[in-house]
């Protein structure tokens, strides 16, 4: 079986969800969906050329988050929020799939809204991929 990032139906589902996320949150500047081991599956936004690098970093961050949560005897890491002066980055695991969403927002976006919107996006991807597999 082809790896996730080379499966066209998976790429289409992810690309559509990322486009929708961009429409829901105009302050989203860039988003990428990556496989657990850091390959870009789909991306959207104005910094697409950085996708490869961000995909690898998303994978590392998610794995570090998981490792810390494991060390603290917490459940698996659901999402990671990185806040900076000019914006924030939110990354989130896609339930039941070996995929991670990473979305970059500028400072106009409220954190709470970003958390909610990415959660919706992750849920949509998960549902659509399950439906597709069925």
């Amino acid at each position: 079986m082809k790896p996730l990032h080379q499966q066209e139906p998976v790429r289409e589902v992810c690309a559509a969800a990322l486009q929708q996320l961009g429409r829901d949150c105009p302050s989203m500047t860039f988003a990428v969906m990556v496989s657990d081991d850091g390959f870009e599956v789909a991306s959207a936004g104005s910094h697409a050329q950085q996708g490869g690098r961000l995909a690898s970093m998303t994978s590392s961050m998610q794995a570090l988050g998981d490792a810390v949560a494991r060390e603290m005897k917490l459940a698996a890491c659901d999402h990671i929020l990185l806040e900076s002066i000019n914006g924030h980055i939110l990354q989130r695991r896609i339930p039941n799939h070996e995929l991670v969403l990473c979305a970059v927002f500028d400072h106009h976006e409220l954190v709470g809204r970003a958390v909610f919107a990415t959660s919706e996006c992750a849920s949509t991807v998960s549902t659509n991929l399950m439906r597709q597999a069925a």
Partner: peptide, 11 residues
């Protein structure tokens, strides 16, 4: 060992 393993898709 603290490890950060992910499912390998690059077989």
């Amino acid at each position: 060992v603290v490890s950060t393993e992910a499912a390998n898709t690059d077989r």
